[in-house]
Design a protein around this nucleic acid. Structure first.
Lengths: 124, 124
DNA sequence: CGCCGTACCCACTTTCAGGTAAGTTACTGA
DNA sequence: TCAGTAACTTACCTGAAAGTGGGTACGGCG
């Protein structure tokens, strides 16, 4: 089952040497809320308040923090209109779309199999 | 850019209702070390000590804990030979292989783009 | 006899992600 | 005049995640 894969090189030196930049990006993407925000935006742009409602359970602080990281990484674009009350739209960038293209199949599989996995789970 | 996707249904009710089982599985898979262990095993089975070396920076405690979760979720199979000194091999199960099949393209993309992302990053 | 190697477990401590709740801005409509 | 709204920020606190350092079993080897 050894698949020749571009990742193979990384494996020979250990899986992603600890201080490699991909570890940082990986942490952002796989952060508790990062994935969910990216998935939420995968269908189109959303306003702050919409994101807050759609991403069930996220606090305002965490939404702000998560968005700051995703914007800084260039996955999400922030579009603020200086109206009153303020209106801010968030949308995936091209880079964000490349990412979510790889993220969605994973999320699909997880949501499809989660119930089976949890119910079959060997008691600790 | 609205792609008709099996995930669409989930999005209408919010992204993965907070107490949905997929949130739990998602947390396991996207845990700090979970991804790395899965990727490490994607090329073939490894012994405890090999995993420890390959997954750069993981502590023994975290390796044990991560493996327990992945085994309980049915992603990884544990094969202990009662020899002295002990020998334990870890390998992906069929379910684990289905998962990593979706995980590897993501990891590939991240490792390929991480450097650009980190260096272009807007100063906080 | 006593130390090595392998694969762990356990108790303790630290760190930090994340939660809670309040404050802020600037206008609008009642 | 005063509550309401949208999108935040800030300070504070807690609980879970992760690190540290020890212990364990079992036999082989010098």
């Amino acid at each position: 089952m050894v698949v020749s894969h571009p990742l193979a090189r990384l494996l020979t030196d250990g899986v992603l040497p600890a201080q490699c930049p991909s570890r940082a990006v990986l942490d952002h993407v796989t952060s508790k809320w990062g994935v969910l925000v990216l998935v939420a935006l995968s269908e189109g742009s959303l306003r702050w308040g919409e994101l807050r409602r759609v991403v069930d359970g996220i606090s305002e602080k965490m939404l702000a923090q998560t968005l700051r990281v995703l914007v800084a990484d260039g996955f999400v674009a922030r579009d603020a209109r200086p109206t009153i009350p303020p209106r801010v739209d968030y949308a995936l960038t091209e880079r964000g779309r490349e990412l979510t293209a790889r993220l969605l199949p994973l999320m699909d599989w997880i949501t499809a199999n989660a119930e089976a996995i949890v119910s079959e789970r060997a008691r600790s």
